[in-house]
Design a protein around this nucleic acid. Structure first.
Length: 427
RNA sequence: GCGAUUAUGGUGAAGUGGUUAACACACCGGAUUGUGGUUCCGGCAUGCGUGGGUUCGAUCCCCACUAAUCGCCCCA
């Protein structure tokens, strides 16, 4: 018998099960996300968990780590190359284009999703191979108040759940012109002394010099502080746009910190980028990442359509809740528990149990053939308000003993009156 | 992809190259008859991640594998 345990198949690496004692918390989080989205008038969109590999290569960007080494891709029986989605935005945009949602009267499209994402990575704290994102996308508006709105939405979500230690970090990557100018300036800045930097940075120089600013090893190199900031290369319209976003956040009373080195990992971002940081086991990590991606819709074959969005990880949210000592678990309780003594009483208990449930009461009984005392213990574990005792005497009298578990008082109640009696007591 | 640490029952864990693998929690049972949350007593791993090797003998030594945790890279 026991040896078979060793042969059992284990859960895949980087995945985990949400067990009954925790699923309640997940439900509460998802419920909160849906409620907040309703407040902001965002509608849910559900897209497949796998898509054409091409979608992510084009959408997320060929040079990103996600595409280069983290995708779960496979061939189906028709030799199609498919990929388990590593993020949500590409799918939403694909769906938006495919169903021509840009033609609907309700513009912009304000959408949200909650679901699993997959990245082939080494699992560690706050990082699993299957993880869950709650994300929001607004397609069709270039109004800076939309940028502010999604940030407000994310903050509202966290605050509703009770998180306090949050930090919003903001930056602008500008439009393509701003980025190109900054790109050149960075290369010019680092190139002469690139030999003093780590290997990674040397590789980054030509490919993506912006990433050098993110390097932890060379963080203290003097050239880091004097590096050209994207902010100084923003074109007039880009600068103006960023000022408007900041202005609205200011007036909303949402505090932020500017970080010109905030670079997001996906290629499609431009203009506003932001992260919401929170605590996790003493360290600070990114809870939410988002920004504007004005070129993505056309990149995926749709009409020129601006977009903004964010994605946040439920797993990291859970870590942050833990650090801040916030429990979302409710006192689950039962209205009543039936303790039966003897076989005939057991049968009667099953019938009464069903009647109580039909009457809308949360009720349960023992299924383990336990002694009365143990049945009471079980009722305690389930935090049951009342225990109904049925034995031979009660069957004779057609009336059960009903014990109030809070004060220990006990009354005799006819079988036919049980539901009404309990309902009256509970209200 | 790289590095570090770890791997004993339902859980947290102690432990030794050699007859019965501590302890605690949980669970189950009992303390006279059918009643909980306290107390007392009892039960509960033929087994120490998997596979090899060293040895007269290994849970304890060696190797490989697997997994977990943490860090790097990168990200949510």
């Amino acid at each position: 018998m026991k040896e078979e345990y060793h042969l059992l198949i284990q859960i895949p690496r980087g995945t985990y099960d949400v067990l009954p004692e925790d699923s309640e918390v997940w439900q509460k989080i998802e419920e909160t996300a849906r409620k907040v989205c309703a407040l902001f008038n965002y509608k849910e969109i559900r897209t497949p968990i796998f898509e054409s590999t091409d979608l992510f290569q084009r959408g997320v960007g060929d040079t990103t780590d996600i595409v280069q080494k983290e995708m779960y891709n496979f061939k189906d029986r028709g030799e199609r190359s498919l990929t388990l989605r590593p993020e949500g935005t590409a799918s939403v945009v694909r769906s938006f284009v495919e169903h021509k949602l840009f033609g609907l009267p309700n513009q912009p499209a304000k959408l949200y999703y909650i679901g699993p994402m997959f990245r082939y990575e080494r699992p560690q704290s706050g990082r699993t191979r299957q993880f869950t994102q709650f994300g929001v996308e607004v397609l069709g508006s270039k109004d800076p108040s939309v940028d502010a709105e999604i940030i407000a939405l994310a903050m509202t979500f966290y605050k509703t759940l009770g998180l306090k230690k949050l930090k919003l970090v903001l930056n602008s990557l500008g439009d393509p012109e701003s980025r190109a100018a900054h790109h050149e300036a960075l290369i010019a800045h680092f190139k002469p002394s690139i030999g003093e930097f780590c290997e990674d940075c040397r590789n980054r120089l030509e490919k993506n010099p912006l990433r050098i600013l993110d390097c932890k090893k060379d963080h203290d190199h003097p050239l880091m502080k004097t590096a050209p900031s994207i902010i100084d290369f923003l074109t007039e319209p880009a600068r103006d746009y960023f000022e408007k976003v900041k202005g609205i956040l200011d007036e909303m009373g949402i505090a932020y910190e500017l970080d010109p080195t905030l670079v997001r990992g996906l290629d499609y971002y431009n203009h506003t980028t932001f992260e919401i940081m929170g605590s996790s086991k003493g360290a600070i990590t990114t809870l939410t990442g988002g920004g504007r991606y004005n070129g993505l819709v056309s990149e995926l074959g749709g009409p020129e359509t601006p977009g903004v969005g964010f994605a946040l990880s439920i797993e990291r949210l859970l870590l942050a809740l833990e650090v801040e000592n916030i429990s979302l678990k409710s006192e689950t309780s039962l209205d009543c528990f039936i303790a039966a003594i003897g076989e005939e009483a057991g049968r009667k208990a099953a019938v009464i149990l069903n009647e109580l449930r039909q009457a809308g009461l949360r009720a349960d009984k023992d299924y383990m053939d336990r002694k009365v005392k143990a049945q009471f213990k079980q009722a305690d574990r389930d935090r049951s308000g009342f225990v109904i005792v049925i034995g031979d005497e009660e069957l004779q009298a057609q009336a059960a003993k009903v014990r109030n578990m809070a004060d220990g008082s006990q009354e005799e109640v006819a079988f036919t009156e049980l539901a009404d009696y309990l309902k009256a007591k509970i209200n």
